[in-house]
Computed example of a mutant assay.
Amino acid sequence: MTTAEYAQHRGCSDSYVRRMRRDGRLILAPDGKRIDVVASDALLAETSDPVRGGDRTGKPAPVDAQGAPTAIVAPLHDRVDLREAMRRERLAKARAAELSLGEQSGALTRTHDVRRDTFTLARQAMERLRRMGSKLRLKLAAESDPHACEQLINDEVARISEEMQKAAHALTQKRPMPTEDAA
Rank of each mutant, 00 (worst) to 15 (best):
V157Y: 10
A158W: 07
A170G: 04
E162D: 12
I160Y: 12
E163V: 00
C149A: 13
Q165A: 07
P178T: 11
T179W: 04
D155W: 05
T179C: 04
C149D: 09
I160C: 03
H169N: 09
P176R: 01
L171Q: 11
A148R: 13
Q151T: 15
D155H: 08
Q173E: 07
Q165F: 03
A148E: 12
E180C: 09
K166G: 08
N154D: 15
P146G: 01
E156G: 06
A167Y: 00
T179Y: 05
D145M: 03
K174R: 15
Q173V: 01
N154L: 14
N154S: 12
E156C: 10
Q173F: 01
S144R: 06
K174L: 14
H169C: 06
E150F: 04
K166S: 09
Q151V: 11
R159T: 12
R175H: 06
A158S: 14
S144Y: 03
V157G: 10
D145V: 07
H169L: 13
E180I: 11
D145A: 05
E163Y: 03
R159N: 11
I153C: 09
M177D: 00
K166V: 03
Q165S: 09
L152T: 08
N154W: 10
A158Y: 06
E156Y: 06
K174E: 15
K166I: 03
Q165R: 08
A170H: 05
H147M: 10
M177H: 02
T172K: 12
E162N: 10
N154H: 12
M164K: 00
L171V: 05
E163W: 05
S161Y: 08
E150C: 08
V157K: 14
T172W: 05
C149Q: 15
L152G: 13
Q151N: 14
T172D: 13
E180H: 10
Q173P: 00
N154C: 10
A167F: 00
C149F: 04
